[in-house]
Design a protein around this nucleic acid. Structure first.
Length: 747
DNA sequence: AGCACGCCGACT
DNA sequence: GTCGGCGTGCTC
């Protein structure tokens, strides 16, 4: 019998797989987990290729070790997921281990700590009625109550009994000891929707646009067909999803729905739940590892044919995928900004292709990438032009802050906006105020020496949070007390001044201006844990008049009582060194405007700005996504920027500024040499290397190097060669190099 | 990424 | 005399 070998993706950041000998008796197929020796360690990996009878080339046969164990009889990654992982590894130049283990829950890979462990099911104690109390058998009042209840119910869970009678588990045990009842541990599925409030959604007749979209997608089921569903807020994209999913389920197939952040879209989830009941799986970061593991297993067993989740749910092990939906496809959170840096929207098209099913990208304000794909015929455009029930889009007005007086000393509220808030309050209608900056003051500035207080570990200013009484770095979470005097040793003046404002200050100033208003704030500081859902419920219940928030308030919530939306400073995002700054501003303004006037009352939107001529603002005024997209696309074309061209960025960081710079230059030299030697050097550009806009984070100096190419293939070849050089290079241990293909963040 | 091996300072 | 600092080398 000849030896057999398999290739295994192991969870290490190395750009290659490792070969192992297959011991007799094992039959490891691709997609099967195996336990392997790796140096002094043992790791859980996934078989990518083999078994193969010829030994791997280029490996010293003496070094090849046998597999320690085969952990699965059948592959845990089916052919579709394996192809998706392989595609992802190639496109994003990921180490195979990073790509191939991505779909598996931490419990199946051993996660951080060594061994894969079997999932323990959640259990609940169930009490069964055995007999009633005889004469002379004395029972406590509570015990009698429990017994009386069980006598008719016959069985009940301990939590239900506690709710019914107040009886503790201990009381139940005493009853069981006297053989009045029998206790049993029963396995129960964990509920990923435990803290979700049910929301009823009135059904109404589909509009002609909805009907056409549903028909077009439904007739494409069973084959790869990518669509862009474009429709303004309130035009009923969700209803299209729901009806198409019904058609998918009727074919015996499953549907996968990706949403930007599941915690911020409880209403969408609630509607899915109302329609599909307990056939829904949820995969999101709020689930504990066991709950996630359990959802994963139930999805793989085809028990839950509707999967809804954030970015990482793209890798859900759905065996018979019949439809992929990416809601709010333009949302930047679909790109993961930590390794592995993949874009779930882009990968959804790959998976749809592999699964042979329609992919439905939905947005009111499509990304430029998707818009270009439409124009090139790679996506079919389906448009919803009418809003349900003929509600008009709310009028948007720009308030030029240079032309008006302010209601407050901090110059937060222009008089027109303040008057509008007051009128709205008098009419007992709700208001949302949006500012994309949290904290109280943006930073503290010393008027004597002109220095501002910055983070000791990062090259950014500290943000003053008055409620917590602390200066906080939004990049490394460094927390500092507020100094009484300027910490500059050559200054020491007490002239520290608060500069700029965040949501916390807006909230405070508004409380002073309108003491009778019930004001609340929604940002990352106020929505830890379950606080977000509570806040949303209170606002919906109209316990809050004015909600001040960051971009969290722009997401898909539906608040019928909101008739006024105010944007405090529209240009906060425009100054960022980011090629998508205008695009993001347009998305945000359009989304936030969509919050106004969703019920029977008309809404309006007031946008404060010092920069009213900006085209992103002008197009948001008219709700004209097509006009914005056309103008922005022309701009990108003129500047040779994505999505017309293709981009990747090498980022380097380390504690030694000179070493980081040197290595960045060395990477650049290698790339430049490859470009010069290429057939078409004119179609590739290097930008940099240069220090990142935030030069230092957590004490590490950061440099970056952007590569732009006209052809995707040329970019891939260049990067592959640079990565190969880096793999061989002996870099200082504390110097990190990372690659980001199709970067979304430029800081 | 880990983990081991290896060569130089302050402790029982 | 040893415990332990982290440089650097390797993982089928």
């Amino acid at each position: 019998v000849t030896a057999r070998y398999v290739r295994v993706a192991v969870p290490v950041p190395l750009h290659r797989t490792f070969s192992y000998r297959v011991p007799d008796g094992m039959e490891p197929q691709p997609g099967v987990r195996v336990s392997v020796p790796f140096g002094p360690r043992r790791l859980v990996g996934v078989v990518t290729d083999g078994p193969d009878e010829s030994p791997p080339e280029g490996v010293d046969p003496k070094k090849i070790k046998p597999l320690l164990a085969q952990l699965d009889e059948q592959p845990v990654l089916d052919a579709e997921l394996r192809a998706l992982c392989a595609w992802m590894a190639t496109y994003y130049h990921l180490p195979p281990g990073e790509a191939w283990l991505q779909p598996l829950p931490p419990g199946m890979t051993g996660g951080r700590s060594g061994e894969a462990k079997p999932l323990t099911m959640k259990t609940v104690t169930v009490a069964h009625f055995l007999r009633a109390a005889g004469d002379g058998e004395r029972l406590s009042a509570r015990m009698a109550q429990v017994l009386k209840f069980l006598e008719t119910a016959l069985e009940s869970t301990a939590p239900d009994l506690r709710a019914e009678t107040g009886a503790s588990l201990d009381t139940l045990r005493r009853l069981a000891a006297r053989e009045f009842i029998r206790l049993e541990e029963r396995e129960v599925p964990r509920d990923p929707f435990a803290d979700l409030r049910a929301i009823s959604h009135p059904a109404h007749e589909p509009t002609p646009g909805q009907r056409a979209a549903i028909a077009r997608i439904s007739e494409s089921l069973g084959s790869f067909s990518p669509f862009l569903l474009m429709g303004v807020t309130g035009s009923g994209k969700t209803e299209v999803y729901l009806q198409v999913i019904e058609a998918v389920l009727a074919r015996g197939e499953a549907a996968l729905v990706l949403v930007p952040e599941i915690a911020l879209t409880p209403q969408l989830v609630a509607r899915f739940r109302a329609r599909f009941g307990d056939r829904i799986a949820a995969l999101h970061s709020g689930l504990d590892p066991d709950a996630r593991h359990e959802q994963w297993l139930r999805i793989a067993a085809a028990e839950l044919p509707v999967v809804i989740g954030a970015r990482s749910a793209l890798f859900a092990p759905i065996p018979n995928l019949g439809l992929l939906v990416v809601d709010e496809e333009h949302d930047p959170s679909f790109k993961q900004d930590t390794p592995p840096r993949y874009h779930a929207r882009d990968l959804s098209l790959v998976r749809g292709h592999l699964a042979g099913c329609p992919v439905l990208l939905g947005s009111a304000t499509p990304s430029l990438e998707s818009w270009l794909n439409c124009r090139r015929g790679k996506l079919e455009l389906l448009e919803l032009t009418e809003r349900a029930m003929d509600r008009p889009m709310p009028p948007v007005s720009l308030i030029d802050l240079r032309a008006y007086d302010f209601a407050d000393e901090d110059k937060i509220f222009s008089l027109p906006l303040f008057e509008a808030i007051r009128e709205n309050l008098a009419r007992d209608e709700q208001t949302i105020l949006f500012l994309n900056r949290r904290g109280f003051a943006a930073f503290l500035l010393c008027r004597a020496c002109g220095q501002s207080l910055s983070c000791p570990a990062c090259s950014v200013t500290l943000t003053w949070h008055r409620g917590r009484g602390r200066l906080i770095c939004h990049w490394c979470d460094h927390v500092a007390a507020r100094p009484a005097v300027c910490p500059n040793p050559e200054c020491g003046d007490d002239a520290l001044q608060e500069v700029g404002f965040g949501t916390e200050r807006v909230e405070g100033v508004l409380r002073e201006l309108l003491p009778e208003a019930r004001v609340a704030r929604m940002d990352r500081d106020t929505t830890r844990g379950k606080a977000l859902n509570r806040l949303l419920d209170r606002f919906r219940d109209r316990d809050i008049d004015v909600l001040v928030g960051t971009q969290m308030v722009a997401k898909g919530h539906d608040f019928p009582g909101v008739t006024l939306v105010g944007v405090l400073l529209a240009e906060t995002g425009l100054a960022l060194p980011d090629l998508r700054a205008s695009e993001r501003t347009f998305h945000l303004l359009t989304q936030i405007a969509g919050r106004a006037g969703r019920a029977d009352r008309p809404g309006r939107v007031l946008v404060q700005t010092y920069n009213p001529e900006h085209y992103a603002l002008q197009h948001a005024l008219t709700h004209d996504a097509r006009a914005f997209l056309a103008e922005e696309l022309a701009l990108r074309e003129a500047l040779d920027r994505p999505p017309i061209t293709h981009m990747a960025v090498f980022r380097l960081n380390g504690p030694d500024a000179d070493a980081v710079m040197r290595e960045a230059r060395s990477v650049a030299h290698g790339l430049q040499a490859d470009i010069d030697a290429a057939a078409d050097p004119e179609s590739v550009w290097l930008m940099g290397p240069q220090p990142a806009p935030i030069e230092r984070i957590r004490g590490l100096y950061r440099w970056q190097l952007h590569i732009i190419a006209r052809q995707r293939a040329a970019l891939g070849t260049l990067i592959a060669r640079a990565m190969a050089r880096l793999d061989d290079a002996k870099l200082p241990a504390n110097l990190q190099v990372s690659l980001d293909v199709d970067p979304q963040s430029f800081l």
